[in-house]
């Protein structure tokens, strides 16, 4: 079940996350943010690539996201595998991928960057802190950084 909401104009973010609670935290944080962001939520690899490549009935109109927020701990194919496929696909390679994980393990961080992740954020324990992280991320990626049109 894809929770997806299209907002005209503004930014599109694809969140790949199987934990609905965490997805909710992201959504709430983004809602309180300064930018008009449409959050597309995929719960696993299949939904994510379906969305990105417009495969399947639900994704015929899916937009190309400006950012991808990727959890590592996913059912089936892991976040690392998704990351690898994203960065090996010439059409998708250009989309910045921010790994958003509960893991603080060094090996996960190293591996993510080695596979081409653009950032690695450990999910904070605290909801306020979580929101703060998301807002900082918005500022960075949407105000400071220039993204491809």
């Amino acid at each position: 079940m894809v929770g997806m909401r299209n907002v005209e104009g503004g930014y599109h973010i694809l969140l790949v996350e199987d934990d609905l609670a965490d997805a909710g935290l992201v959504r709430i944080a983004l809602r309180k943010g300064r930018h008009a962001v449409t959050l597309h939520h995929a719960r696993d690899s299949a939904e994510a690539f379906g969305f990105l490549r417009r495969i399947g009935a639900n994704f015929t109109e899916s937009p190309r996201p400006h950012l991808i927020l990727l959890d590592l701990n996913l059912p089936g194919r892991s976040g690392h595998e998704i990351l690898q496929e994203l960065k090996n696909d010439p059409a998708l390679r250009g989309i910045p991928v921010i790994v958003l994980s509960t893991s603080e393990a060094e090996r996960d961080i190293v591996r993510s960057y080695n596979l081409g992740a653009n950032s690695f954020i450990s999910k904070p324990m605290d909801a306020d802190e979580f929101a703060h992280h998301i807002h900082t991320m918005e500022t960075y990626w949407f105000d400071i950084v220039r993204l491809p049109a």
Binding site: D19, D22, L25, N73, T102, S103, A105, M125, D126
Partner: peptide
């Protein structure tokens, strides 16, 4: 580090 803390985080958040 990951799985045990995840529910705690949810509760807390």
């Amino acid at each position: 580090s990951h799985d045990l803390r995840q529910p705690l985080r949810t509760v807390r958040s």
